[in-house]
């Protein structure tokens, strides 16, 4: 049975644009995945190109035409089918993009250690920040599921990402000049970790200063249905009533609204308010409550009497 996301997890996704499930996939499946791609110790890897060609020719990872339903994409009992059918992954996918998502594309990202760059006389650089694909002003969103079959240490770099950037509409590498952004994070994790990104989340691959190859498998999924209350089929969610602003009493309890209204260290003082407004608009779409608001951000400016 898929484990659907909780309303708290959905609010976290609406606010930050990402969710993580640490050490979710069991050791046996991680091993099956690595065996399938012909993972070997780094001494046996001659060059980036030969290693990659070898994986492509021997692994069971199928070639999936863009737009193929996910359910028809991976061979039964293959490691990737098991990973995507894991009850938590399956539940998260169903909660975010519904029961019949399509595969946009998949990729196996390999980040090689320093010696391969030295060998090829290339400058070893991290990947610049970007938003995947192209400028995308839709309300519908895709998700990118990331799977890490091995441990990723700090030295290995990890996928760099910027929580809360997913609703900023930019044009792919148009954000490449932001070398460092306050609050930036890297996915440093144990084997079997799965992450899910909103397609708009700003990110880039970190540089690998370890001795080991870093692996990350990604699949981008597109919904075929409206992304409304998919995690809450009984439609139990009700927006919270308005609370007092500024002149208020201290409340200790963290509510869904506090998760939605989280600020991030990279946000400008002025635009931060628009970021909050866009999270409320996103939450209206996700919950189907077209007039709901948090902290009066939209009610105030929708009170147009002329």
């Amino acid at each position: 049975m898929p484990k659907l996301l909780t309303t708290e997890q959905m609010a976290e996704f609406a606010s930050s644009g990402c969710l993580f499930f640490e050490e979710l996939i069991d050791e046996q499946t991680n091993k099956e995945f690595l065996d399938d791609i012909g993972h070997t110790s780094v001494e046996n890897v001659e060059s980036v190109q030969t290693y990659f060609d070898n994986i492509k020719s021997t692994s069971s990872i199928p070639r999936i035409p863009a737009g193929t339903p996910l359910k028809d994409s991976y061979p039964k009992n293959s490691p990737l089918e098991k990973i995507l059918k894991n009850e938590v992954v399956d539940g998260a996918i169903k909660s975010l993009v519904g029961s019949n998502p399509l595969v946009d594309h998949q990729a196996l990202h390999l980040t090689f250690p320093t010696k391969y760059f030295k060998g090829a006389n290339q400058r070893q650089m991290s990947q610049q920040n970007h938003q995947d694909s192209t400028i995308d002003p839709r309300s519908t969103f895709d998700i990118q599921v990331f799977y890490f079959p091995t441990e990723v240490t700090k030295e290995m770099g990890g996928t760099r990402y910027h929580p809360g950037t997913h609703l900023r509409v930019v044009n792919e590498f148009g954000i490449a000049k932001y070398q460092n952004i306050k609050g930036q994070k890297s996915i440093v994790c144990k084997p079997g970790t799965v992450g899910i990104f909103h397609n708009g989340l700003w990110h880039g691959a970190g540089v690998n200063f370890s001795e080991e190859i870093r692996y990350m498998f990604k699949v981008r999924l597109q919904p075929t249905e409206k992304q409304e209350l998919l995690w809450d089929p009984e439609k139990k969610y009700k927006p919270l009533p308005n609370r007092a602003l500024y002149w208020s009493d201290e409340v200790k309890e963290v509510t869904i609204n506090d998760i939605l209204m989280k600020s991030y260290p990279w946000q400008e003082a002025d635009t931060n308010r628009l970021d909050k407004i866009n999270v409320v608009k996103f939450w209206r779409l996700l919950t189907g409550h077209k007039k709901m608001d948090v902290d009066y951000w939209l009610t105030r400016i929708e009170n147009e009497l002329y």
């Binding site: 610049q128 770099g157 932001y178």
Partner: peptide
């Protein structure tokens, strides 16, 4: 400061994303 980048034309230091 919320974001920053450095490009060093002297070649003394190679700055890169996420450093």
């Amino acid at each position: 400061v919320i974001s920053w980048a450095t490009f060093d034309g002297t070649g003394k230091k190679l700055h890169m994303t996420g450093d």
